[in-house]
């Protein structure tokens, strides 16, 4: 059996979120196997911020992340498809009207 499997046994999967700099949102960067949250932060930053990609890291157990399922795509996202009037460009304003 490859050694890696033995090392990871029992280590849960964490999702890693990285903040590029102050003022920005944490954005999902990827996942990491780790023994506990503190370990996941250590490993997560080692893997995802080796080139100054971030100033802050969040981790969350992957099993705690609830996600939409592909079959729900229609009911969740389709309703906004035909609502073009939600976009500012739907309204024509003459070019000579400033600051609009």
């Amino acid at each position: 059996m490859p050694r890696q499997t033995v090392v990871d046994a029992g280590w849960p999967l964490y999702e890693v979120f990285v903040r590029g700099k102050r003022g920005l949102n944490h954005v999902h960067a990827g996942s990491i196997r780790a023994a506990d949250p503190a370990d996941a932060i250590r490993r997560g930053s080692a893997v995802y911020t080796r080139r100054s990609e971030g100033v802050s890291v969040w981790v969350a157990l992957a099993s705690d992340v609830a996600a939409s399922v592909p079959e729900e795509k229609e009911s969740l996202f389709a309703p906004s498809g035909d609502k073009v009037f939600r976009h500012p460009t739907f309204y024509s304003i003459p070019d000579d009207v400033p600051h609009m």
């Binding site: 920005l24 309204y91 304003i93 609009m100």
Partner: peptide, 24 residues
């Protein structure tokens, strides 16, 4: 304050539609 600024960015994007629909 970061979270306030980020909320404002989302809101400002959407307000543009509000103002234009009114003027139109």
């Amino acid at each position: 304050y970061g979270p306030y600024g980020r909320a404002m960015i989302r809101i400002c994007k959407e307000e543009s539609f509000h103002q234009r629909q009114g003027y139109e």
